[in-house]
Simulated scan of single mutants.
Amino acid sequence: MNNNSNEFKIPRMRTVHEAAQELKEMDEHTAVTEYHIRRLALSGVLPRVQAGRKLLINFDNLIEYLQNPTSDKFQVHTATADDVNGIRRIN
């Protein structure tokens, strides 16, 4: 490949299960679970892509979030944050 400014990096998309396994391979003593990664994706903290029944996340975004969870990039809008499993607060 030539060094062109139009090149882009292909995102490392993983299912929640694959992301948890890869994270476990990187750090066998990690306390981050598959359930926690799924909650981050479903709550909107981590961007996700629905591919059929599979939930895909960008593994690099997960690592970035774990390094700096207070970054503005990972802040959720209040409408999404209040929405939990399809149930929303009625004011």
Score class of each variant (00 low, 15 high):
Val45Asn: 02
Asp72Met: 12
Thr33Ser: 11
Glu22Phe: 12
His36Ser: 14
Val84Asn: 07
Glu22Tyr: 09
Thr15Glu: 02
Leu56Cys: 02
Leu55Glu: 12
Arg88Tyr: 04
Ile10Arg: 10
Asn58Gly: 06
Val45His: 02
Leu62Trp: 03
Glu25Gly: 02
Ala31Cys: 13
Ala20Ser: 12
Ala79Arg: 09
Leu46Trp: 00
Arg38Leu: 10
Arg88Val: 08
Val49Met: 05
Gln21Gly: 10
Asn3Gly: 03
Glu18Leu: 13
Arg88His: 07
Val84Glu: 08
Lys54Trp: 11
Lys54Tyr: 13
Glu7Pro: 00
Ala31Asn: 14
Gln50Arg: 09
Lys73Trp: 03
Ile63Phe: 03
Thr30Pro: 03
Arg12Ile: 10
Lys9Ile: 14
Pro47Asp: 06
Asn4Cys: 02
Asn6Gln: 05
Lys73Phe: 07
Leu42Lys: 14
Asp82Trp: 13
Leu42Arg: 14
Asn2Gly: 04
Met1Thr: 01
Lys24Phe: 08
Asn58Phe: 07
Ile10Glu: 10
Tyr65Asp: 00
His29Glu: 15
Glu64Ser: 08
Asp27Arg: 09
Gly52Pro: 02
Asn6His: 05
Asn2Pro: 11
Ala31Pro: 08
Asn85Met: 11
Ala19Tyr: 00
Gln67Cys: 15
Gln75Thr: 08
Phe74Arg: 05
Phe74Asn: 07
Ile63His: 06
Glu64Thr: 03
Leu66His: 03
Asn68Asp: 15
Phe59Met: 04
Ser43Lys: 10
Arg14Thr: 08
Val45Tyr: 00
Asp72Lys: 13
Arg89Tyr: 15
Gly86Trp: 01
Gly86Arg: 00
Pro69Asp: 01
Ile87Thr: 14
Leu55Ile: 11
Glu64Trp: 01
Arg88Ser: 11
Thr80Trp: 02
Gln50Thr: 07
Arg89Trp: 14
Lys9Tyr: 08
Thr33Gln: 00
Gly52Ile: 01
Glu18Arg: 15
Pro69Ile: 01
Glu34Met: 07
Arg12His: 14
Phe74Lys: 05
Glu7Ile: 10
Gln75Trp: 06
His36Pro: 01
Ile90Ser: 06
Glu18His: 13
Arg48Phe: 02
Met13His: 04
Pro11Tyr: 01
Asn4Val: 01
Tyr65Gln: 01
Lys24Asn: 04
Asn68Val: 13
Asn61Val: 05
Asn85Gln: 10
Arg48Asp: 00
Thr33Trp: 02
Tyr65Asn: 01
Arg39Gln: 15
Val49Lys: 06
Ser5Pro: 04
Ile10Ser: 07
Asp72Ile: 11
Leu40Met: 05
Val16Thr: 15
Ile87Glu: 14
Asn58Val: 13
Leu42Asn: 11
Asn3Gln: 00
Asp72Cys: 09
Ser5Gly: 00
Tyr65Phe: 07
Asp27His: 13
Thr78Asn: 09
Asp83Tyr: 11
Ile57Gly: 00
Pro47His: 05
